[in-house]
Design a protein around this nucleic acid. Structure first.
Length: 137
DNA sequence: GCCAACGTTGGC
DNA sequence: GCCAACGTTGGC
């Protein structure tokens, strides 16, 4: 199983909205970046991911699970773009902030730190465990 | 709200 | 195929 990180501006799509969707999940559409799309193509059913609030919040607030593998993005007719569906699994008791991540030497190689603009990113197992520990999970 | 970093576009 | 110009993202 692989781990990922999904970024969203809470103004556009927040963790609360994701939770409200329940097990039905939500299509992660609208991504127009090849690297992010390629990451989604690699995702398998049951893969886990962090849900991160960018711009406002700047913290990891929840855990999601891939509930549909890559398919065409319904927000465009352009066949280049694909996306997965994700559903909320649980909230992070103590949200892990960008500041806390940057302050932790074990997380200095995270894509979130090195390439903050990529909206769908891979997370290593070590990073996953460390952030879960920091988040109180 | 600013602006650096990054990705994409398009003229040559 | 290069690279300048442009648009967008996202931390600050």
């Amino acid at each position: 199983m692989a781990y990922w990180l999904f970024k969203s501006e809470p103004d556009a799509w927040s963790w609360d909205q994701q939770v409200a969707k329940g097990d039905e999940g939500e299509e992660w559409g609208g991504v127009r970046n090849y690297q992010a799309r390629n990451n989604m193509r690699l995702m398998k059913l049951g893969d886990q991911g962090f849900f991160y609030h960018s711009r406002q919040g700047l913290e990891i607030v929840g855990i999601v699970e891939v509930c549909a593998e890559a398919h065409s993005d319904s927000t465009t007719d352009d066949e280049r773009w694909e996306c997965v569906d994700i559903k909320a699994v649980k909230s992070v008791p103590n949200p892990v902030s960008m500041k806390a991540i940057k302050a932790n030497p074990e997380l200095e190689e995270m894509v979130l730190v090195k390439n903050s603009r990529l909206s769908v990113q891979p997370v290593t197992e070590a990073e996953w465990k460390e952030i879960c520990r920091m988040g109180g999970l």
